[in-house]
Design a protein around this nucleic acid. Structure first.
Lengths: 162, 162
DNA sequence: CCTTAATCGGATATCCAATATCCGGATAAA
DNA sequence: TTTATCCGGATATTGGATATCCGATTAAGG
C-alpha cells in the first residue's frame, strides 16, 4: 500500500509551474531534466493531471504545461486522485456473502460494516489531503529554504521560458 | 495505491474470533472455509497479526488462533499496520536534491515540504483508523444484521470448537 | 510550405510487490 | 504413534507500477 512516484514528481512539478510567468509553459523534457526523472513516463503522469483539470497543456512549438488554476485552488487531493485514481483504497470483496454463513445478496441491506469503517477513515484522509494546498506547501518551502536556492530556481525557469 | 486483501480478510476474521468462548481457538483451515479464501495465504497473514500482538496462536492438535486482547483494544490501525507494514505510504525520494537546482544534502535542514504535507495528512488517517475499534464495528454489525444470521455464526463457531 | 518542437495516446516491455502454493519442521493432544 | 495444527522458508504466479517507443496531431517560425 504505497503511493506511486508520479504523485511525488507531479507535486514538486506543480510548485515549479506555480512560479512561471503568466502565459508561459514548461515542456516535459525540461521538467524531467530539472528533477532527473524519466521523461517518457512523466509525460503520462502530466497527461493524467491535465485530464483532471489540474494543469493545462499547449501543444506545438513553444508549448508545454502550466497550472490550470491558482495555487490556493490546487490541493494534494487533486494530485493524488488524478494520478492514483479515485481513492477508495479499501476494496470490499463482500466476503460476508461467502461460506457456510454467507449472507444472501438480497439480505445485504446495509453496507458491510468493515468497509464502512474504512470508508469513514478514508473520508477523513481525503479531507486532510484537501486541506493541503499548493499555496501552503510553497509558503512552507519559501520559509524554510535559503533565498539563494529560490533565486537559482527562478533563474532556471527564466532560462527555459526565454 | 490499494490496500491488500489480507486486511479485509483479517478484519472480518477478528470479528469471528471475538465471539469465541474464552480459551478456545479457530484453525486457519476453518477460517479459510468460513470465508472461502485461500488457506495457505491466509496463514501468512495470521502470522503477521500474531507477530504484531493482535492475535495469539496455540500450536498442535486442537490449537488455532484467538484474539490477544479485548475488542475495545483492537483497532483497524492495528490490523493495517500488521498486514501492510508501517504506514508511511508516501515515499519521499528526495528529488529536491536532483537536477540543476538540486539542494546539497547538508543544506537539507528541514524535511521536504511536500513529504511533510503528506506525513501530516497520513497522521490524521492513522488517528481515524485507530478510532475504529473492533468493538464499534461489531456493534454496528449486530445492529444492522438480523438475529438469524448471528445465530448461524454462533452455531458454526460452536460446531468448530466442539 | 516546410521544418522544428511539442503534446497526445496507443502499444509494448520490464520490474516488483501482492497473491498464492508447497513442504519440512516443531509442537501438542489423543 | 498418530493426528492436527502453527511456523517459516522457498518458490511460483499474477497484476499493477514503472518505463520506453512511436506515429499522429498541433502550432510556431522561417
Amino acid at each position: 500500500m504505497q503511493i506511486g512516484k508520479g504523485v511525488e514528481w507531479t507535486a514538486h512539478i506543480c510548485t515549479i509551474l506555480a512560479i512561471l510567468p503568466p502565459g508561459k509553459g514548461l515542456s516535459v523534457d525540461a521538467l524531467a531534466e530539472f528533477f532527473e526523472i524519466p521523461g517518457a513516463y512523466l509525460s503520462k503522469q502530466m497527461q493524467l493531471l491535465r485530464r483532471h483539470g489540474v494543469v493545462e497543456s499547449v501543444r506545438g512549438k513553444g508549448g508545454g504545461y502550466r497550472l490550470a488554476r491558482g495555487v490556493e485552488e490546487i490541493t494534494l487531493l487533486d494530485i493524488v486522485s488524478a494520478i492514483e485514481g479515485p481513492m477508495p483504497v479499501f476494496r470490499c470483496t463482500e466476503i460476508r456473502q461467502n461460506g457456510p454463513c454467507g449472507l444472501k445478496r438480497k439480505d445485504c441491506l446495509h453496507p458491510c460494516e468493515v468497509a464502512s469503517a474504512f470508508a469513514s477513515a478514508e473520508q477523513i484522509y481525503r479531507d486532510a489531503l484537501q486541506a493541503q494546498t499548493l499555496a501552503s506547501i510553497m509558503q512552507q518551502a519559501t520559509a524554510n529554504s535559503g533565498p539563494e536556492h529560490l533565486l537559482d530556481i527562478a533563474e532556471w525557469v527564466q532560462q527555459q521560458t526565454a
